[in-house]
Design a protein around this nucleic acid. Structure first.
Lengths: 218, 218
DNA sequence: CGGGCACTTGAGGACGTTCAAGGAGGGTGG
DNA sequence: CCACCCTCCTTGAACGTCCTCAAGTGCCCG
């Protein structure tokens, strides 16, 4: 039932997983629907079972920063309040937990508590990477970072075909660029022979070394 | 002994503070010295008693992202490994705790544990702000954000005089800009009458409303 | 007093944005 | 099933912001 790749469920016994299952509810969303909305009190915690989503922060002036793309296994809702909205990119299924219950369970199942801690560390580490990305890297480098990131995180991605479940606008708002710059940069990467464009929503990575080198954050 | 403004010590009884004090050691640093270095295993947790510091991440290519400016009361070292270096900007004093001991104490003192959780939330929230800042805001807006931030956080700051304990390069690396852009933007803010430059390391905020409006993140 | 570092300012250029237009795909209703 | 529309993507041209390179000034510290 639960995705073994999820950090939340890692190392848990079948018994523990069943216990978790009894406290979870399945939530199903269509395309471009909100799993949770910005600035609302957190009621539930979710783990993504299938599909992709985006965590976004929209200011009153209308500008939007995409904080993260979200994939199967990921956990949503660790902070007290939803400081950002989460919107599905594809049809999506998620396991819904009452956050109070989950923390009670974490007290009883030390492994679960550890997993929650690990998730917090992962989130922190990813955010540090993104800060470096936005502060220091150029448009082409940012895109290479994204492609490597997607290659790692998308369930069915491989070098010969990386699906892009998000729009150019989502990418732009994630990388701190405009749609046009994203589009032009992708074209430029293709013309340089680093990637191939298989369709508007899928690319192939032709020169993994160079894409990786341009994208890495160390 | 301990700064009451620090979130870590908030609400703690004198008895609890004394208990903490018995497990802490004073650490004293000069200017521009490392409290902890990037990519070294975390051995200690620190709270800043006096002085300012900067949390920075330097990549192998030499580019540097300043993650945060650090002020009295702030806590350093919650993550497993130092994912960033912390360097003093001014002479600095800090309370040093063994991180193992601190977490044991947090088990025994629920208030302390809560404070640690609150700090994690604050850090997360500040990082989200900074992501928005770097992804969406322009140079002038970033500077206004910094000034408002310093006004809130610096112990002795008020509208008529905000000290800047960091160099232009620190500011540039924090805001994802170059030294020259920072310098020019400060001049531009002065020429627009939003601020006054009292010296290379102190400014006055003349039009608080507009500076705030340009800097806010919502 | 000298040297070095930090800060400022200028000129020119690169990178990214804005504005505008055109095309391609997908979904809906006739 | 086709026509239409809408959204998304791409491309071009002009512009603006920020960066790079370079020079000059001021200040702190030895």
């Amino acid at each position: 039932m639960f995705d073994k790749n999820s950090v939340l469920y890692r190392s848990l016994s079948t018994k523990d997983l069943n216990l978790l299952g009894r406290h979870s509810k399945m939530k199903v969303l269509g395309k471009r629907q909100y799993l949770c909305e910005q600035n609302t009190p957190r009621d539930f915690v979710y783990t993504i079972a299938s599909g992709c989503a985006v965590a976004e922060r929209v200011s009153s002036s209308g500008r939007r920063q995409v904080l993260s793309f979200i994939f199967p296994g990921d956990l949503i809702g660790l902070s007290e309040q939803y400081e950002f909205g989460v919107k599905s990119l594809t049809p999506l299924t998620a396991h819904q937990f009452d956050h109070q219950k989950l923390h009670e369970l974490a007290e009883r199942l030390p492994l679960l508590g550890e997993n929650l801690q690990d998730i917090r560390k992962l989130v922190l580490s990813m955010m540090l990477d993104q800060l470096y990305l936005l502060g220091q890297k150029k448009a082409l480098e940012r895109l290479c970072y994204l492609f490597m990131h997607l290659l790692e995180r998308l369930p069915n991605a491989d070098v010969s075909c990386v699906e892009l479940p998000m729009t150019r606008l989502d990418i732009a708002d994630y990388l701190g660029l405009t749609v046009e710059t994203v589009s032009r940069s992708i074209t430029k990467l293709k013309n340089s022979g680093l990637i191939d464009i298989l369709g508007p929503h899928s690319i192939a990575i032709l020169d993994l070394d160079r894409v990786n080198q341009m994208g890495v954050i160390d």
